[in-house]
Write a protein that binds this DNA or RNA. Structure first.
Lengths: 244, 244
DNA sequence: GAGTGGTCTAGACCACACC
DNA sequence: GTGTGGTCTAGACCACTCC
């Protein structure tokens, strides 16, 4: 690979390497949980120095796309491993613990994308979407009511049965069954009154305050994969955010 | 500086450099907004290679403690500069814009630290604290009611008059008048019903849902400086969180 | 042109995991 | 021991800013 220094559209070599590595992740050459070639091998493959590969991997590791393990190698991050399992769940109980949620699927429906869904999911208005609703219980009590919307183009053949029989979180289902790894999410939070329906699911009275978390989840290359809204009973839990 | 490789308490050189740089920041050798010595000069000073200094600065820049500017130098980050001015304010209006808040100080009081305040602010139970309350208006309308608690040990002589006459955000006040730069914050969010008092300040009815944001703000070395709770009317605003 | 940070290289050696 | 990532060095050259 030749340097592009001095070129009008200057891009550092390591960024180009990042793109090449990401392409191999998207194409499935290296799957979640698998090891990727060593830095030395990648340096040979891309015809750059080990230091340049290192910088590319450093940034991908900082973005939680790869995981380095000294003495072992570099691995594709996965939602299957314990540490990342509930990475996107920001709810803690009053003791500061993250409780293991138990999910119950309530409904599975085909709906049509309105203007907003079309925009955030990058599909045409009126195109079909899958809509799931579920309740997450922590310590036996319902805490979160989820409404999840997915494009059936990305999730071909996703049925309620498939979801119910799958062992693991829904993001590890995306990953395992559809090769879609969630690497980023954007959440918008509001305090809203509980509707009668949601209040019923969460054991609250209608009108009581609940935390609404609207999320867009993205895969490699900022591609939107999922929209959801999580309605949370925050009587005994809080949403934690650390601002660095 | 000699390498500690092989030592039982192995610490990479660049981490030691990070600590040394941070010490100079705490001691005030380099103040917010000021330039620090060039990488080459720091390398000479600490008797390490430029690459090692570079890695230390890289991490401090990633932590928003330093700011690199190509061709100019490396600077101590500051809340005074436009980009960082409202960095810890995560509230956006429905158009996705961050609105400029206007602050009105409501009360200034001396209180005593209860067990919780003592714990989070690292002071003795019963020791004096300063308590401020204020309202933040956006676009003329009250959106946030703040309750802020500070240790008078760190903020000697902080009076209501001093706050009122200060031009700029309260974090730039901490920085300019007391040399305390906020570099990190931990926020705990809940949806709660508005109390009659807070409802009055925010133009809501008592019991309507508001977003409660409890924040502990830290300076260098994870030292707590401020506790606050922000009670937000999220009818026309949302709290944004990007999870990487 | 001089000085700063940014990129890239090549090579040495250390720490860690696995055999 | 071998192979992996992690640290550290020295040096070259590029890009940006200011004079």
């Amino acid at each position: 690979m030749t340097t592009l220094h001095g070129s009008p559209t200057f891009r550092p070599l390591y960024e180009q390497i990042k793109i090449l590595i990401t392409q191999s992740l998207v194409s499935g050459e290296w799957k979640p949980g698998e090891i990727i070639p060593s830095e030395i091998d990648l340096a040979k493959r891309y015809k750059v120095s080990q230091g340049t590969v290192r910088k590319a991997i450093d940034e991908l590791a900082a973005e939680n796309i790869l995981v380095r393990r000294q003495g072992k190698g570099t691995f594709v991050a996965t939602h299957t491993e314990e540490k990342r399992k509930y990475y996107y769940l920001r709810l803690f109980n009053e003791s500061g613990e993250k409780e293991e949620p138990v999910s119950e699927l309530l409904t599975w429906n085909k709906i049509k994308a309105d203007a907003k869904m079309a925009h955030v999911l990058g599909v045409r208005k009126g195109s079909p979407l899958i809509e799931l609703t579920r309740v997450l219980r922590m310590n036996g009590k319902p805490v979160i009511y989820d409404e999840i919307r997915l494009s059936p183009t990305l999730f071909k053949g996703l049925t309620a049965a498939k979801i119910n029989e799958f062992q693991g979180t829904i993001y590890s289902l995306y990953e395992t069954l559809y090769g879609l790894r969630i690497v980023q999410a954007e959440e918008r939070l509001k305090a809203i009154p509980a509707s009668p329906k949601v209040a019923g699911h969460l054991g609250l009275k209608a009108g009581e305050p609940i935390l609404s978390i609207e999320r867009v989840a993205l895969t490699y290359g900022d591609k939107p994969v999922e929209w959801r809204v999580s309605l949370c009973n925050t009587e005994n839990h809080y949403y934690l955010n650390e601002i660095g």
